[in-house]
Computed example of a mutant assay.
Amino acid sequence: MKLSVIKELVENYSLEQLKKSEAAMEEGETPTFEIKGEDEGEQFTHIIAAVWIKEKMATDGIDARSAMREYTQKVRNSIS
């Protein structure tokens, strides 16, 4: 997981665009735009994270930085 890639997705694509690409990847299709990553698993991780962050921003009315911080905290807690 590369935070710089997730940040780029959050900044450059709408929630709708991100969800369409996520759905395409789930169906084994090519996403509607390039998603950086070592392999399809990492690319999928990036798109899922970006969707989560965009949704958090919309539901909680927070900025991208705060939502990303919450996401990384969530990941850390799930690992430990």
Rank of each mutant, 00 (worst) to 15 (best):
M25W: 14
I6R: 02
E27W: 07
N77Y: 01
A24N: 07
V51Q: 00
A23Y: 06
E40W: 04
D60R: 12
P31F: 07
L15W: 04
M25L: 07
T59K: 05
L3W: 13
E16I: 10
Q43T: 14
L18C: 02
K54V: 11
E27Q: 04
V51I: 01
D63Q: 15
A58E: 15
S4E: 15
D63P: 14
M1A: 05
G41I: 14
A64W: 07
K19T: 13
I48G: 03
R65S: 14
E40G: 03
G41W: 07
I53K: 02
K74N: 12
K2A: 04
M1S: 09
Q73A: 05
I53R: 03
I53M: 05
I6C: 04
Y13T: 13
V75S: 13
Q17W: 10
E8W: 11
K54F: 03
T59S: 01
Q73V: 06
I62S: 05
A50D: 10
K74I: 08
G41D: 15
A24C: 15
E27S: 03
P31W: 05
A50F: 01
A58K: 14
P31L: 11
I79G: 08
K56C: 09
A50K: 00
E70H: 05
K74W: 07
D63F: 12
E70L: 05
E42D: 08
K36P: 13
E27H: 00
E27Y: 04
P31A: 06
G61F: 03
T30Q: 10
I62F: 00
A49E: 11
E34G: 04
L15N: 11
E11D: 06
S4N: 15
S66K: 14
V75A: 03
N12L: 11
A58L: 15
E11R: 08
N77Q: 13
